[in-house]
Structure formats: C-alpha cells, structure tokens
Design a binder for these strands. Sequence first.
DNA 1: GATGATTTGTACGTATGTATA
DNA 2: ATATACATACGTACAAATCAT
Lengths: 221, 221
Amino acid sequence: MFDAAPTPISRKLRAAIEDEIVAGALLPGERLDETALAARFAVSRTPVREALNQLATSGLVEIRPRRGAIVASLTPERLYEMFEVMAELEAMAGRLAARRVSAAEIEALADAHAACGANRDDSDRYYAANETFHQAIYAASGNAFLAEQCRALQRRLRPYRRLQLRVRGRLATSFAEHEAIVAAIRTGEGEQVAELLRAHIRVQGERFSDLVAGLARLGAA
Amino acid sequence: MFDAAPTPISRKLRAAIEDEIVAGALLPGERLDETALAARFAVSRTPVREALNQLATSGLVEIRPRRGAIVASLTPERLYEMFEVMAELEAMAGRLAARRVSAAEIEALADAHAACGANRDDSDRYYAANETFHQAIYAASGNAFLAEQCRALQRRLRPYRRLQLRVRGRLATSFAEHEAIVAAIRTGEGEQVAELLRAHIRVQGERFSDLVAGLARLGAA
DNA sequence: GATGATTTGTACGTATGTATA
DNA sequence: ATATACATACGTACAAATCAT
C-alpha cells in the first residue's frame, strides 16, 4: 500500500476554500469567518488561518488586520488592468508556442479546440473546454514559469468570468477566433498568433469590466 | 500620537525574512528553522509559520510537508524562464508608458536615470538606482496590477542579481540602454520602447542563467 | 531495522483590538 | 461616550512524522 501522502490539513483546506471561491460558492466581498470555517471543515482555527493567509498572499482573499478576512473583490479598473496583463501574457505564450510547439502539443491543442466546438451549445461546458484550450497554449509555450503565471491569473479571474454567462453570440465568435489561432500556430506565424490572442482576451476584459462596473453602479457592498 | 497602525507581528516578520532573503543574508537552499527564527525574533512559532506560509505562496521559500522550509532555489532553466517573462512584462510596461506617461512621471524617470549616471562607478549603488529607474517605468505604465507583478518578479529575482556583481563594462552598457529607453518614451514610440526593454532585460537573463548554470556545474547542493 | 531526538502540524486558551448597543 | 460582545493574533501544549543514530 502507498503511504497515502500525508498531506497537511492546511493544504487541503487552502485548496478547498480556493475551489469554493473560484467556483463561486463564496462570492466576492463575502466574509470568511475563521470559527465558522473551522466548524464546517471540522478542524481547529489554526489550519484555517494558515489557509487564509496563503490565499491572501495569492490575492484571492483580503485580510484586514483585526477585522477579518473577506473574499477579495476587484474594482472594475483593477479587473481591466488584470485582463490587460492577461492578454499580454497569453500573447507571449502564443508567440512562443508558434515557434516551439511539438507535434504532440499541437495535437492536444487541436483536440481541445474540437472539444470547444462540440460544446458550442452549452456555455458551462464550453467554458471548461475553453480553459483547457488556453492551457494547451500555455503548455506549448515551453516556458513552465509563464504557464504557471497564466494559469494563476486565469484562476484568479474565474469568479468574474462566471458572471458573464451567456453573452449573445460570444461562443461562436470565440470559437472562430480559436480557429484562426490554431491555424497561425500551425504555420508558425508568431506575431500573428500574439496579435490574435491579445485581441481575443482583451475583448473579454472589456466586457467583464463593463459588466462589473454595471453591477457596482447598482450598489453592491 | 498616531495609533501606529497595529501591524500584526506576522506581517513584520514576513517583511523581515523576505528582506534577508532578497538581500542575500539567507541563501537559496538554506534551511529556515521555525524554532530558530522564532527565537531570533523573540516571538513564538505561530507568527513565524504564518510568515513562512505567505513567503511560500509568493515563491520565495519552499515548504515541503513535514520536512520544513528552505529558501527557494531556482534551476538555471527556471531562471531563464523567469527572465523571459520579466522581459515581456517590462516591455509591456514600457509600451504603455510611452502612451500614457504624465509630465511628473517622465520627470521622475529622468531623475532616476540621472541617479544611475551619478553612480556608474559603484555597482551596489548603481543597482539600487537601477531598480528605482525600472520602477519608475512600471509606475508610468498606468497599470497598477502590472506594476505590482513587475515589482514582485524583480524582487524574486534579486537574490540572483546579486551574484552578477560587477561584470566588466555592463554598467556603462546598461546606462546607455536606459538613455535610449528614456528618449523613446519621451517621443512616445511605444513599440521601440518595448523592443529596447525586452533586449535590455533578456541580456541579463542570459547572463544570469549562464552564471547559475556555471555554479550548478561546480556541484552545489 | 528499531529507537530516540528533533521538528513539524494541529488544538486550544488568553489577551487585545474592533464593532455595536 | 461607555460598556459589552465578539473575532482575531499570538502563545503554549500535545501529537505525529521525519531524521539520525
């Protein structure tokens, strides 16, 4: 029998809380009560604190000293800024991928693209396939650090992507854009790939920040 | 008297330990004993643990479950990857700065550049001035999130920059490159700025990773 | 390979600071 | 404005796992 990898509780907790935030079960601005979380997961407050501290460092939660932790909520400006950076990192990954992609990687990319196509009618499943597609690009960049940064940002932005839900016709447009991106990676046109990805991401950023600005105007805490 | 913002001990500790790592007092691979650190800072293990956890999230230390924390040490490949990303982020900041820079910001940039010039004979002081120069570019990008990312990466790479010390003639070359960058920002040539910065950073990355690869070949643990 | 020493991971109590009546 | 209630920050105790012998 394998020794069951004695993962510390605090690690599992971090993953669990992070998942809830990313999945939207815990909404931006929501309070994260140490005692309540400890009770819910049937552990003491210590590992909860460690988990919250780590999440604070990675930016998903905000800890105000002596005033508790809340799920971090981003202003529209900041959201826009984050998408601007995301667009550039993705463009970089795409440019590198066009130069360095292996046969196996391009196949994985094509598969992910096909999966997107197969789910064009279901926005939830499309978004899942979409993430896989983009991660295939990160992987093909041949820069593991870049891939990590991209994944981290993608994850951090996910709570906000959820808000988009089905914007009319966006899925079809997104799929068409992917098509062009794959084609340009195949032919090794790095700058073209970069430009396509930049535009592809930036559009989303503008939509999202508009949306969040709209929500904010309605006056959520 | 002002209520002195009762900063939690763990925050101060994180900053203190981070500073020691970044300044090179704690070397990559070195063990970070919780008890020893607690004794040295005259606190209990709890805040030390919290600080280490946060540093682990930001990547400066590595925590192996049940086996303690060490100062993170980067492989030459990873170092190269990080510089590759850094080059792109700086290029982005420069491109944006060329478009958005304010009068006050360009003055700050010019001052920082002058400070570099005044310290061309002292590598330690030059590097300090150099960081200020680059941070002035980040600030001028008008993207606060991007600026944070750049600063974080700059900080994470600093322990390795220390190793470079005085490479023959590098200071003069660096200063000349800065000159061109400032000029291009003044005239708003975004793409030119981006290209100059990309090259400026990438050169360092290549040097550093060569250097670290050399050290590794000598057989450090 | 087993045992002891050291160190990490978790639980819990107490004090201090923050918000509310 | 004072006091009360409550949640956090830190310290300390214990348990479990790693390592050194």
